[in-house]
Structures are given as C-alpha cells and as structure tokens.
C-alpha cells in the first residue's frame, strides 16, 4: 500500500463521453491486445443495445449504451466501463496475498501467480471490476490491465490508442487540467463534475459526461479512499492483541494469587486452630 503517494504523474485516462461515438473500437482493441476470446452473446440480452451484456473474464472493457430523448429526438449516450485504476485500490488492500499492486506508471496490476482465488477483491471493488473464471476448476481473477506492458514501453493503452475521439491518455495532473478546461470552455455541453476526480479517493480514469452520472449507470461511490475504512479497524490489531494478552495474563495472575493467598490463610488458620485445640487439651 502506498498511502500519501503523489499520484499526479500517474498515467491516466481522460474519457470524454460527449465525444464517444459508440464505435466500440476500444472493445475490439482490448480483445486483440489481451488476446481474449469472443463471447457467445445475443443482442438485447442485457439492459439495452450494448453487447456483450456485461464485463466478464473475456471482456475487460465495454461500451454501455443509454437511449434517451432530447428535443423529441432519440439520442445515445455512452459509458466506457473498465478498471478505474484507483489511486488507493480497494482490491489491493483486501487481497490477503497482495496480488494487486498500484504501479508507479498508474495501472493497477494483478499478479495471477500469487492469487489464491478468494474473490475478496470482487466484494471490495466499488466499481464491480474484477471478474472470475467461473468455468474453470482452479479459477483466477481477470480485469483490465491498464496495458501496463505498453505503458512501460512508452506506448498508450490499446483502447486509448484506438479511440478516434474520446480518450486522452497522459499524466493525471495534466488530464485533470484538460478536463477542467473543457468544463469551463463549454459549460452547456457537460455536467459540471468529473467522475473519478475524487471517487474512491481519486482514480486513474476520469470521465466527462453530458448526462448525470447515475443515469448512465455510473455507481455512486464514496469520496474517501476505500482502504481507509478497513485500515481504521485493522491498525488497532497489534494494540488489541497486546492489550488482550497482557490484560488476561494480569487478570489470571491476580485471580490465582488471590486464591493461593486465601488457601495459605486457611491453612494457617487451620494450623492455629489445631494448636489452640492442642493447648486446650493440655
């Protein structure tokens, strides 16, 4: 864990959903780069036009379609779902074997050779990102890699490279600056907030949208970094262990000493009584 690290130079996605055309080039590029198999799906098997219906072990990113009306016209709005690459990831904090790591480059990296498959990351992730290989006898977790190998070589992630309109990739501070400029420049175009700027303590994926976030299917997430919630309790562990151990030891010592003293006193009294009885006899 890296509390209080400076995240401003982490590689970050600025995804301007008002510019997204729903071409799903990012979905294809992701499958290609990560060599993920296609899924057998049916159109309209999910909530709307999107396909596949949900992210899965084979689909790390997906464009979600939102059909709405504006001035009597049907319009589409889109939401590119993917790993948010949190600054302080919940998955990394709950994993018992430390299989997730927030890398210096920005992506949250999953070490599949460590994972024991407990699925706590799936419970913990506020965005519902980690997916599981349910079909396997000894399954592992799957999620967007943030194209760490590409980023390390100075390339941009596959989806960001492919996207013709919406995705900009760069250091977090620059992406935040760019996002703010856009919000200021065309206030009528955007909801005046950036999702991911503060969500879950800040993430390496930042969204700009025209529709309110909840209407697009964004989850409402706390602004606090999630690991803090559990750390608040866990940081007390050594203290509680020592206090409980020492307290009970002291208690045991006191109660047993008291009992020994009482026994000794009784023995003395008995001896005294016996002596007195002897004297009386004499």
């Amino acid at each position: 864990m890296s509390f209080n690290r400076d995240f401003s130079r982490d590689g970050t996605f600025l995804i301007d959903l008002t510019k997204c055309t729903g071409c799903r080039g990012c979905q294809v590029a992701c499958k290609q780069w990560n060599q993920l198999p296609a899924e057998h799906t049916e159109f309209f098997s999910g909530e709307g036009y999107q396909n596949p219906p949900a992210m899965s072990e084979y689909t790390y990113t997906r464009i979600k379609f939102r059909d709405y009306q504006k001035n009597g016209q049907h319009e589409f709005a889109f939401y590119k779902e993917m790993c948010m690459h949190c600054n302080e990831p919940a998955c990394a904090s709950v994993c018992p074997v430390g299989a997730f790591e927030k890398t210096a480059e920005g992506p949250v990296f999953y070490k599949d050779n460590r994972c024991i498959g407990c699925r706590f990351c799936m419970i913990a992730c506020p965005f519902g990102v980690p997916k599981y290989e349910w079909s396997k006898a000894l399954p592992l977790v799957k999620k967007c890699t943030g194209c760490l190998e590409r980023v390390k070589e100075g390339l941009h992630p596959a989806c960001a490279t492919t996207c013709p309109t919406a995705i900009t990739y760069g250091p977090r501070d620059e992406m935040i600056k760019l996002g703010k400029e856009r919000l200021l420049k065309s206030p009528e175009r955007y909801v005046q907030k950036a999702y991911g700027y503060q969500e879950a303590g800040g993430t390496s994926v930042i969204y700009l949208t025209a529709l309110p976030f909840d209407e697009l299917g964004f989850k409402q997430v706390t602004k606090r970094a999630l690991p803090e919630y559990t750390w608040e309790a866990l940081r007390l562990v050594p203290g509680i262990f020592l206090t409980a151990g020492a307290g009970l030891s002291a208690l045991a010592w006191i109660t047993h000493r008291r009992e020994r003293l009482r026994q000794e006193l009784e023995k003395e009294r008995a001896a005294l009584a016996a002596e007195e009885a002897k004297e009386d006899q004499e």
Binding site: S93, C95, G98, F120, V237
Partner: peptide, 10 residues
C-alpha cells in the same frame, strides 16, 4: 506474501 492491510490475511 503478507498483506497486513487485508482483513482476510489477518
């Protein structure tokens, strides 16, 4: 592989 931040580890 210890992770003391994990309640599951604990």
């Amino acid at each position: 592989y210890w992770n003391v931040h994990s309640p599951m580890f604990e």
